[in-house]
């Protein structure tokens, strides 16, 4: 297997971006949306997630290790590209650059987010008032908005290239329809996330 190591590593990178990281992202945003239905609802949902059996194991296998692998290889992939939108300003080339830019933003954002809402507070789970406290600062609110939009873009556009990497969308027509579908994913997840952040920040 050693002879195809690079190929297999890149395929793993692609797969992990969707399964499990992408699925976790969707789940994370949807569960957090409970905040919109009130503090109690959010805390109940957060407690449920926090009380899942084998929580630490699940977190490592489904979240930390896959993201760590994807992110470290991702930074390397960003580093070996030479963007050339100046001379070749096609739509997909811009998406290529944005995929890389949002990857870096996502990286910074996730590191901070995990530090603040997981590591710093120890083994007790995050609750509504923690998020309320963080997001009531306008700076942090906008930091979270940018981090969220970047992550969701990276996931949605990554889904598009995932379909190509796995040979699902081959014809130009199917790839075009996949573009529209992933735009819908981007808009829908952005709405879910931004709506939640507004509730934490402004209580509405």
């Amino acid at each position: 297997m050693a002879e195809h190591r690079e190929f297999l590593t890149r395929r793993l990178h692609s797969l992990l971006g969707v399964i499990p990281i992408g699925i976790f992202l969707v789940q994370h945003l949807v569960v957090n949306h409970f905040a919109v239905y009130g503090e109690e609802n959010f805390n109940k949902a957060a407690d449920f997630m926090h009380g899942l059996p084998f929580r630490l194991l699940l977190e490592f296998v489904v979240i930390y290790l896959p993201i760590l692998f994807h992110a470290i290889l991702g930074v390397y992939i960003v580093f070996v590209a030479r963007s050339n939108t100046k001379n070749y300003g096609f739509f997909r080339n811009w998406m290529f650059v944005l995929q890389r830019v949002t990857g870096i933003i996502t990286f910074v954002y996730i590191v901070w987010h995990v530090w603040e809402t997981r590591i710093q507070i120890g083994s007790q789970g995050a609750d509504y008032s923690l998020m309320e406290g963080i997001l009531s600062s306008p700076f942090m609110f906008w930091f979270y908005i940018i981090g969220l939009i970047a992550t969701v873009f990276h996931f949605a556009n990554g889904l598009w290239s995932f379909f190509v990497t796995w040979g699902i969308t081959q014809s130009p027509k199917s790839q075009k329809i996949a573009t529209y579908a992933t735009v819908v994913v981007f808009l829908a997840l952005s709405y879910v996330g931004v709506r939640t952040l507004i509730t934490f920040a402004y209580g509405v």
Partner: peptide, 25 residues
Amino acid sequence: GNSQNCVQVCPKGIPLTTSIAAMNR
């Protein structure tokens, strides 16, 4: 990395990105 510049610039109009997706599969 799916920038798809190749298919835009190929003077022979070769469907490079379709080929790449087919070879991915």
